[in-house]
């Protein structure tokens, strides 16, 4: 039982990170119907940006207070990653808008290869270890096998929850969110009704990147090490999560992320960690066989 609770805590932490990345996939897919393959690498880039800013703050500027540093790192990583994704959309995807469907996909794959190799060239191929932060533990139950929760985990879940709330507010209540949902339903109609479609799509990429940057910062904090290859596997897992939850559906992405995180953690704990990826992908395949449009996705109705 204690092991179960402990794994639940670990799984939810991992799932929060996946969920944050998955939102970026699902939003972009919802609005322009494109699988943004570079999103995993944008996440990796954001982890590097967070790492560099953290080091610059603590070493060059001599900031000693961890919570303040974390807050600055989070905001700065969100801003810089958002700028990156904005530029990527502008350069690599916008010229292909309205072109045939696989063209942006290939462009995104090229961008993904570019980003990971770019980071390798400018920051070096080695693992980058981060000094540990927020390592204190809280004992939820007593005993030698007691369930513990580190400050890191609490921080990750709290930040994820807060940002998801903020994000939900933006999508549901603001003009931008309305424009975004309108574009998702019918881009042509939205533009006829005065929605600036290009701007909305740009902002979608910006929001997706900001959430990925949150995930990147938390990932760096949680694992304590980043590498230029770290984009691919979390990216694919998050994409899997988005599809599992029903691609295009925002709550679906979060639920899918949490599910994938839990599946992976429980599989590693009870069976073997070697095959945790196989477990996650198999669950996806089985789910799709019985629910072809994911857990919360709308079934695709094709009009003739």
């Amino acid at each position: 039982m204690e092991n179960f609770l402990q794994q639940l805590v670990n799984g939810l932490t991992l799932g929060s990170i996946y969920g944050l990345i998955a939102i970026g996939y699902t939003m972009v897919f919802g609005i322009i119907g494109m699988v943004n393959f570079a999103h995993g690498d944008v996440f990796m880039l954001s982890a590097f940006i967070a790492l560099i800013i953290f080091l610059a703050l603590t070493q060059l500027l001599g900031l000693a207070s961890m919570p303040v540093a974390f807050l600055i790192v989070l905001v700065a990583a969100m801003a810089f990653t958002a700028l990156w994704n904005w530029a990527i959309e502008r350069v690599a995807y916008r010229p292909l808008r309205g072109s045939f469907r696989l063209a942006p996909l290939i462009s995104a794959i090229g961008m993904s290869i570019f980003l990971s190799n770019f980071v390798q060239v400018v920051q070096g191929p080695r693992n980058k270890p981060v000094p540990p932060m927020f390592t204190d533990l809280i004992h939820l139950t007593d005993g030698p096998l007691g369930v513990t929760m580190s400050y890191k985990q609490i921080l990750i879940m709290a930040v994820t929850a807060a940002l998801l709330l903020g994000f939900w507010f933006v999508v549901q209540k603001t003009a931008l969110g309305r424009a975004q949902r309108a574009c998702e339903q019918d881009r042509k109609m939205a533009s006829l009704l005065g929605v600036d479609v290009d701007r909305t799509i740009s902002l979608t990429f910006v929001i997706g990147a900001a959430l990925a940057a949150v995930a990147g910062t938390l990932y760096m904090l949680y694992y304590g090490v980043v590498n230029f290859t770290d984009g691919f596997t979390p990216g694919v897992k998050a994409f899997t999560a988005a599809v599992l939850g029903g691609i295009g559906s925002l709550p679906g992405a979060v639920i899918g992320g949490l599910l994938i995180g839990l599946i992976e953690t429980f599989w590693s704990a009870y069976f073997s960690s070697d095959y945790k990826d196989v477990a996650a992908f198999s669950v996806l395949a089985v789910t799709l066989i019985f629910m072809p449009s994911g857990l919360l996705g709308r079934p695709e109705v094709e009009k003739v």
Binding site: V35, V236, D274, D277, V278, F281, S282, L284, I289, P292
Partner: peptide
């Protein structure tokens, strides 16, 4: 067989997952 009912991007992710499964099995 399992992916016949899937369309477009769902097919893409399942085939991607299949490729990864084969690789992970070969590694482990």
């Amino acid at each position: 067989f399992p992916v016949l009912r899937l369309r477009g991007d769902y097919l893409a992710i399942v085939t991607l997952a299949f490729g990864e499964i084969i690789r992970v099995v070969l590694i482990n």
